[in-house]
Every structure is written in structure tokens, then in C-alpha cells.
């Protein structure tokens, strides 16, 4: 009698594990493999050759509203976009904040810079931080390192993004290179990949419902873009918004798709950040960039 109850509860536990504790979600299938490198776009939108080199973008495509999506909006990054915009003011602000936080070199060391040099640092984020015991993006670490000095730089705030932009500027033209082949980064990438295909919210959309299954199709007036090569221009100056970090962009994506958003720095957004950053491996950082 008791054995049978035990057997049932064991079965039940097994079932729960198999279905992630019994929480039901619709998945957008198949959950694609995705290559942790920007050239993986060749099996998705295949527009990569058109935006591979930002110095050689076809201005005729950039000027054509029906075709410009094929450039993955890289014509709004420097050097094609050489206008002065809000991102430049943010960069100045970031420089002032950074220098005041780094008078004794503590801030740079906390961010993970070797010998105080910021060069290439942006291309290695997100990374696993032994001291934090978790995978963290650059903005999360900026918040952490500022708070160690008693300065509030909340993830997603203008000043946090301004410092992030300033740090990213030192990696201008350098390709992203995060390693998702092992350990906690691999696990985060894998969770991010699953999340990208997990349906949620009022309309039951997954990121991939549009950005994998329908790249190049129109949603109202907008063409759907590829997830490859997309993180390298963040934080970004939005003409309709303000300075926007990647996690704030995810909040906007969630709201637009009818999904209750999460807080910046949440585990799910960090996993998605790792996933999307890996899809930009090999593609150079270029800031300050602008988007509509």
C-alpha cells in the first residue's frame, strides 16, 4: 500500500522533472541549434555578407526603406552614421563618471581590466565572475562596482549605460569574443537558447516566433531582423526613447509582445544576453550607435 504511494510519488517527481516541475509552456519548435558566431546568420537570414563590413555598406540599400533591413540597421552605427546624436553626449557623461569612480584604479580593477586598461573589455562580457559567483553582463558589473564605492548606478539607468558606453568605446572595432563552450557560460547560453524559443505573455509569442521563424517578413511597417550581430551597438541611443541598455531593450520587446517584463539584471535577461552576445561573436563593437 505504502509502496504503491511511494512509487506514485516517485513517478510524480520524475514527471515533474521531465516537465520542469510541471510548469507548462508552449515552445516555438524546433529549438534551433544556433552557431555562437555571427556567421551563423548564413543559415538564418543570409544577409550577413551585406553588413559584415560596416565600412562598406551599400548606401543604395541603406536609402531604400523596403530593403534597408537587409543591412541589419548597421547604417545607424559609426562609421556610416557620422552624425552627432544623444549617444555622444552620453559618452561624455560616461567619461566623467568613470574618471571620478576610478581615481584610485579600483573601479577598473573591479570591472576586470588588466593593468587598468579598458581595451577589449567589452568584447569579453557577459562573463562568469568568480567573485560574484555568477554570470554577469557589463552593466550588472558596473552597478556592482559603483555600489562598492557607495555610488548608485542602477542597471538600466542613464548613468550606468553612459559608463557602459564609455567602456565599450575602448573596444571600438574589436570583435566580440565570449566563450560559451564550457561551464556556467555554456549553461547560461543553453538556458538563453531555450528562453528564446519559450512562448510567454498575453499573445503567447516567443522571441523566435518572429526573429527566427519570420526574419525579413513585415509586422505592420517594420521588417523583422536577425538575432545575429545585434548586441555590439548597446547601450544605444534611441531617437524615440533615450539611452537604452540591452536589458531595457528586452523589457521593450516584452511589452511590445504583451509579456510582463522582468527587472534589469534578472537571471532570464542575463541568460538571453549571453545567448545573443554569443550570436555576435566575431562581429566588431561599434558605439555610440543610434536606432529609431
Amino acid at each position: 500500500m505504502q509502496r504503491r504511494a511511494l512509487l506514485l510519488s516517485t513517478l510524480c517527481a520524475g514527471l515533474a522533472l521531465a516537465q520542469d516541475s510541471g510548469v507548462y509552456r508552449d515552445m516555438d519548435l524546433p529549438v534551433e541549434k544556433y552557431e555562437p558566431h555571427v556567421k551563423g546568420d548564413m543559415t538564418l537570414s543570409a544577409t550577413y555578407p551585406l553588413w559584415k563590413d560596416r565600412n562598406r555598406l551599400d548606401w543604395r540599400l541603406a536609402g531604400n526603406p523596403e530593403e534597408n533591413w537587409k543591412l541589419n540597421w548597421k547604417f545607424m552605427d559609426p562609421p556610416f552614421n557620422n552624425t552627432i546624436h544623444g549617444g555622444h553626449f552620453a559618452l561624455d557623461r560616461g567619461e566623467r563618471l568613470y574618471k571620478s569612480l576610478n581615481r584610485d584604479g579600483r573601479f577598473a580593477a573591479c570591472l576586470g581590466a588588466t593593468k587598468g586598461r579598458l581595451k577589449g573589455l567589452r568584447t569579453r562580457y557577459p562573463m562568469y565572475r568568480q567573485d560574484l559567483g555568477q554570470v554577469a553582463g557589463l552593466e550588472a558589473v558596473i552597478e556592482h562596482c559603483a555600489s562598492a564605492q557607495g555610488v548608485v548606478l542602477q542597471h538600466g539607468s542613464y548613468d550606468n549605460s553612459a559608463v557602459s558606453l564609455y567602456v565599450a568605446r575602448f573596444s571600438q572595432g574589436m570583435p566580440m569574443r565570449i566563450d560559451v563552450s564550457k561551464g556556467p557560460m555554456r549553461e547560461a547560453f543553453e538556458r538563453g537558447r531555450q528562453l528564446f524559443h519559450t512562448k510567454a505573455g498575453r499573445l503567447n509569442f516567443a522571441c523566435s516566433s518572429c526573429h527566427t521563424r519570420n526574419v525579413g517578413q513585415q509586422v505592420r511597417g517594420s521588417a523583422i531582423t536577425t538575432p545575429y550581430g545585434d548586441v555590439v551597438h548597446y547601450p544605444v541611443y534611441r531617437t524615440q526613447y533615450q539611452l537604452q541598455s540591452l536589458h531595457l531593450r528586452m523589457i521593450e520587446c516584452n511589452l511590445d509582445a504583451g509579456v510582463q517584463p522582468l527587472l534589469p539584471g534578472s537571471q532570464a535577461y542575463t541568460d538571453l544576453e549571453v545567448f545573443l552576445s554569443a550570436l555576435s561573436n566575431g562581429y566588431p563593437v561599434s558605439v555610440p550607435a543610434e536606432r529609431n
Binding site: R93, G156, Y158, D159, A200, R202, L243, L255, V259, Q260
Partner: peptide, 26 residues
């Protein structure tokens, strides 16, 4: 979220619709 220029704090304002009834990505 509402980004306030030259501030280290992120402000928030009510969204036009309540979305809490449906599952999130958390």
C-alpha cells in the same frame, strides 16, 4: 522603465495595460 538623463536611478511608470495575468520569461 523611464530613463532619466544624468541620473543613476531608473524610474518606472505604469504601462498602459496590465500584463501580470500571463506567464513571464522568468
Amino acid at each position: 522603465p523611464k530613463v532619466v538623463v544624468n541620473s543613476g536611478r531608473l524610474e518606472w511608470e505604469p504601462y498602459r495595460r496590465d500584463l501580470t495575468a500571463w506567464p513571464t520569461l522568468s
